[in-house]
Amino acid sequence: MTEPIMRLEHLQRDFDTKRGKITAVHNVSLDIAPGSILCLVGESGSGKTTVARMAGGLLKPTSGDVVFEGHNIAGMSKDEFKAYRQAVQIIHQDPYASLNPIHTIGDTLRAPLLHHKMVSSRRAATLKVAELLELVDLDPPENFITKYPHQLSGGQRQRVSIARALTLNPRMIIADESVSMVDVSTRVSLLNTMLKLRQELGVTFLFITHDLAVVKYFGWEGNIGVMYVGELIEYGPTPQLIGRPVHPYTRALAAAIPEADPDITRGKEKLQLRSLDIPSLVNLPKGCVFHPRCTYFEEGLCDLAMPPLEHIGEGRDVACFVMVRDLKEGKDIFQPTVPERKKDKEGAAA
């Protein structure tokens, strides 16, 4: 196996809040292979963004390590850290907030090129900017270079953010909910652009989202980590994990998602959870964090300790006492949760 480009080792992050100390991320370990896609999925408060910020060097872990290309970032010299921050770029959720409104697109993209001496002259910088804009499908570049962010649509602004992330030839991009604020058709074209960049430039992606359907599309060739109130509860290759989720939380999530197909979505089973409410991070339940909501809950098993992430084959891991035990007893835990997609009924009414 190739050496991972990034290793997250037992990451934990605590925050002090008015209502007491919370642990936003608890014991998260993940390896990211070079050129691969890792998607972190979870609802609000799951800790996925906190993991992303630690991986990007924006936030120090309370404990645990971020190891980039074999070097622990906590032990890096100033120059090494700078090189790591150049190699790992972050695309934020909100392109309205992350682009400076008083700079033109050209200025915004030229600045890092000149600052980091990636180019020798302003003229060369402009050429490079045009190249970058074409790369993110803002074509022809002349139409965009002299524009201000407010003159662009949300999708175009997000493309500029991607172009800016690419200015320093990064080896890894962390995209935090980078397509959640745009319309459906724009979202697909942004995802397609990022997939193209991965193909052409071999960039590694850490992709953060709450949307399992987006992950299925973007991360099809990669892996998914599912997070729930700070814990990584399931991990595995995208097709297997989405097709046959094992953790009761992932199953609930997959079953809950409405589908743009009336027959499938109306045929889904009603949501079965013991409680609808996500527990407060200030007062997490004892034992498995999911047990108060879980329909598979077994007293004396699930309410004692948090289950560890265990291998269940096919490169998959799950943190669930019940599922791991059932697997050992030879039961089939890989049941599809969502009805199969029927063939399109095109012209059925005609």
Partner: peptide, 28 residues
């Protein structure tokens, strides 16, 4: 199942499905 406006079709082709064990290409 039987849309006849190109925009409706375009929207439908852009929504990622979660059901199914295969990969569905999407067009923007």
């Amino acid at each position: 199942y039987n849309p006849h406006h190109p925009y409706t079709v375009g929207l439908l082709n852009a929504v990622p499905p979660i059901a199914g064990t295969d990969f569905t290409p999407l067009t923007a």
